[in-house]
Simulated assay, not measured.
Amino acid sequence: MNYTIKHITATETYIVRHPVLRTGKPIETCTFDGDDLNTTFHLGIYIEDKLVGVCSFFKSKHQLLTEEFQYQLRGMAVLDEYQGFGLGKFILTHGENLLKQKNTQVIWCNARENAVEFYKKTSYKIIGNPFNIEDIGLHYIMHKTL
């Protein structure tokens, strides 16, 4: 499957964030704190000219991790009909490579329960205890050293 990965704006992520991560909720719930900071960047993966997957990276430290230079992965999503083709791995790896160039030491995320296996396959590890995010569900803190 031929794909292209591009830097996109926070607003452009909504076309994928909304149906995958905020199903049935108002579009405003697709806005994340820090989306527009100059240290944040958003990536989109395209099949032909259609945006089918997104992920966002926020400069943010987690208290359970000791590394100085950390980024948080948020809003990772691939449209349902494009899941299972490796697109999530492609866009995530692209973001990780960009963060390595910024001397980032660790990436962490709050992984939904149904995404834990995906992250494990890309070398992320669980730390801490599972927790619930209201109206969204059970999550695990996962991290990967770069």
Rank of each mutant, 00 (worst) to 15 (best):
W108E: 10
K121H: 14
I91E: 01
G34H: 05
T66R: 09
I27K: 13
V52I: 15
G75H: 03
G95W: 02
R17E: 07
T39S: 13
L37H: 08
K59A: 14
L99D: 01
N114Y: 07
A10K: 06
E81G: 06
L73R: 05
M1T: 09
N129F: 10
Y140Q: 07
I47R: 08
F85E: 06
A111V: 06
Y82K: 04
E28A: 11
S56N: 03
S60C: 13
G88C: 11
L138Y: 05
I126K: 06
R74F: 01
F85D: 00
H7S: 13
G53H: 05
L65A: 04
R112S: 00
G24Q: 11
G86D: 11
P19T: 05
T23W: 08
E12K: 08
G88I: 11
D80R: 13
K61N: 12
H94S: 10
N103Y: 11
L21C: 03
E81S: 12
N97D: 12
T145F: 02
I5D: 02
K120E: 11
E48G: 03
H42L: 02
F57E: 02
K121F: 09
K61F: 00
L65T: 03
F69S: 01
G86Y: 15
C55T: 12
Y119F: 15
Y46E: 01
E68K: 15
H62A: 03
T11Y: 09
T29F: 09
C109V: 06
A77W: 07
K100I: 15
F131R: 06
I45Q: 08
I15H: 06
G75Y: 03
K25G: 06
T93C: 13
Q70H: 12
G24F: 11
G137E: 07
Q63W: 11
K50Q: 13
E113Y: 07
V52S: 04
E48F: 15
I133S: 01
H94Y: 15
Q101S: 10
L21Q: 08
I45P: 02
K120N: 10
C109N: 08
E81N: 12
I15V: 12
A115H: 04
T23M: 06
D33W: 05
D80L: 14
K89I: 07
N110V: 09
E96N: 08
C55G: 00
R22T: 01
A115I: 01
N97K: 13
T11H: 11
G95E: 04
W108P: 04
T11W: 05
S123G: 02
